[in-house]
């Protein structure tokens, strides 16, 4: 066979990798409408079903949040999404490529921040980025340029020659983020990006992520932090026991499942409890408080305060946390 002919016969994986490369460099729009398209995705560990038959998609340029209590199946879902865990059932297409056959090509286009800070403690900050760049076939010179640019982006250029073990938790998290961006991904996957960070570091990370979002990067993140979900995500999926409970825009979910205004009454009297029950309002009856979810214009606070409230009544806006707790329950998950 002449060498030329031999060279253009590519394997399926090489084809897919080539398509990604070509799209990026020819600045062509990705013909696939969905960055992620999951259908009837299932993950089973022996008898235990971690993810049950879920279907969802992620649009280009969108930030999608995956919420759920511990053990809801968020991490299992995410791990299938970057081809770490093999799926038990269903189909998964990322960038329009089938995960089962094209996992390697898909990974070229994905950046992942895993839950643990798994930076290489044997290496410096800069080396961490450079070594990672090599896994994506990025040549040494452009890896150095990219690494420098990313270190400026996370405001850690002055620490680039320090060992990562000398960094604070927040700094490490930012380096993990920079590392996930080294291949200029089309999709960024973040598994609890701000868990365990102090408020300052958390806001730093949020600002970086907002910046990336505004540049049109598609993002998928899991979180326990409702502020984070509300602030960063265009759309949310709330999961529990491996199933999708609801999905939608944060504001829409709040309106639908927690109303507009919320009245919380601490240590309510028994008469008050029965009064709320008789009014047929959307409410939660807890041990030491009662939470009433009011709809637009129903003026529940005014109705309640006159008769029953002294200083044990709080009026506030409905939040995503209300939605989350109402949908997934208040029992502890361990």
């Amino acid at each position: 066979m002449p060498p030329l002919v031999h060279d253009i016969i590519l394997t399926r994986q090489q084809c897919a990798a080539w398509i990604i490369f070509w799209r990026k460099h020819a600045a062509m729009p990705n013909p696939a409408r969905y960055i992620v398209e999951a259908r009837n995705l299932t993950k089973q560990f022996g008898e235990f079903v971690a993810v049950r038959n879920i279907s969802f998609h992620l649009l280009r340029g969108e930030c999608l949040g995956l919420l759920g209590p511990n053990g809801a199946g968020k991490t299992s879902t995410i791990r299938m999404l970057y081809g770490f865990s093999p799926m038990t059932g269903g189909t998964l297409r990322v960038f329009g490529i089938d995960m089962r056959t094209g996992w390697r090509a898909i990974r070229f286009g994905i950046g992942v921040c895993q839950q643990e800070n798994n930076l290489d403690p044997d290496l410096t900050v800069l080396q961490n980025l450079e070594v990672f760049a090599r896994y994506f076939d990025i040549p040494t010179k452009s890896a150095r340029e990219k690494a420098d640019r990313l270190l400026r982006f996370i405001a850690l250029e002055n620490r680039k020659n320090d060992k990562v073990t000398t960094l604070s938790g927040g700094m490490m998290r930012r380096v993990v983020l920079a590392r996930a961006l080294i291949n200029d991904p089309e999709l960024l996957i973040l598994d609890e990006p701000t868990t365990g960070l102090d408020p300052q570091s958390r806001h730093q990370v949020w600002e970086r992520l907002e910046e990336l979002r505004s540049r049109g990067l598609s993002i998928l993140l899991t979180t326990h932090n409702m502020d984070e979900a509300e602030r960063l995500c265009d759309r949310l999926i709330i999961m529990d026991h491996g199933r999708i409970l609801v999905q939608g825009k944060p504001s829409q979910l709040i309106r639908e499942y927690a109303g507009r205004d919320v009245v919380e009454v601490v240590e309510p009297s028994p008469e008050f409890r029965s009064h709320v029950k008789s009014l047929n309002l959307m409410h939660d009856n807890l041990d030491h408080r009662i939470i009433i979810y009011g709809q637009e214009g129903d003026r529940i606070f005014e109705k309640m305060t006159g008769e029953y409230c002294r200083d044990n009544c709080i009026r506030r806006m409905a939040t995503l946390e209300d939605v989350f707790l109402r949908l997934t329950g208040r029992e502890l998950r361990e």
Binding site: R107, Q114, Y135, N183
Partner: peptide
């Protein structure tokens, strides 16, 4: 301990 392999498995390495 270092989860180095986990990190590698998010890149085009098998």
């Amino acid at each position: 301990y270092q989860k180095t392999f986990d990190a590698m498995l998010a890149t085009p390495l098998s």
